[in-house]
Design a protein around this nucleic acid. Structure first.
Lengths: 139, 139
DNA sequence: AATCTAATGCAACAATATTGCATTTGCAAA
DNA sequence: TTTGCAAATGCAATATTGTTGCATTAGATT
């Protein structure tokens, strides 16, 4: 069975063409994607509303996680850490290149050095570094 | 001279009722605010477009800084560190409460321990912790 | 007070997102 | 294999957020 179907099954989600198509986009592209970027990469056509709802479903189930970048566009990326539903512990860093607009997931970044004062009940931490990626720096 | 006027003067900006009103909202409310939240707190009425443009001006001049929160809404907060124009070095952490939607600026948080692998030219880092604030945790 | 530049307002538009409801479809049980 | 139900999707309508061009107004300097 293909990977997309496996993921859906393991999260108790019905297998539909829409969901498989969206999942395959995430499995192919490693960088975080916005709704419109996902739509462009889809091999089948369907309603924009369905895309929003599917992304929400995936996020709730812990298949993907949301990233809000400095440009204000919400992007999504597939969870590598097998997040439990509704509780993402993405401990890695995202890098946003302000020139090409890409978001890179940097898995192996150590963020254990961050301290926060008491009074807050932290469930997840998201770090976004902004700057230029290698390709854009060259040009 | 009131504080708002001082800030405008020191950044070579013309003193207008709009700008003073917006600045006063930031000076009163310490949490980060979205465009619509700012609009609600304003004592005078003016065009929505002016608000966007004023926020952009303030950001460019280093008076406020943009924060993209997990809910996808862009918020702004006043800079405490006297940022140089166009280059914000907000080294502090933001805390986003997913219940009340508030964003708290945690000034005295040390984030210097973060390491990132080479290949990226980082200009700024933004950290958003997500969870429940004290008030929302109680209820 | 005059003048020039910057700020604002208006109109139009574009992108993004949400909600309700009718219809279709996946899938499990009969 | 067929049936039935809950879930998924599509459609329509609407809300929110943000942008651009251009005419008008207002701040600050002389």
């Amino acid at each position: 069975m293909e990977q997309a179907k496996k993921i859906l099954k393991s999260h108790n989600l019905k297998i539909t063409p829409t969901r498989i198509a969206i999942l395959n986009v995430f499995l192919t592209e490693k960088n975080a994607l916005s709704a419109s970027q996902i739509k462009k990469n889809l091999i089948i056509e369907f309603d924009r509303i369905t895309l929003y709802r599917t992304l929400l479903t995936f996020e709730t189930k812990g298949i993907i996680h949301k990233i809000s970048s400095p440009d204000g566009i919400v992007r999504y990326a597939i969870c590598t850490d097998n997040c439990p539903a509704e509780q993402h512990n993405e401990k890695h860093l995202h890098f946003y290149c302000y020139k090409c607009g890409k978001i890179y997931c940097e898995e192996d970044t150590d963020i254990s050095g961050i301290q926060i004062k008491s009074g807050f009940y932290i469930e997840s931490i998201q770090i976004i570094a902004e700057g230029l990626c290698k390709d854009c720096y060259k040009n």
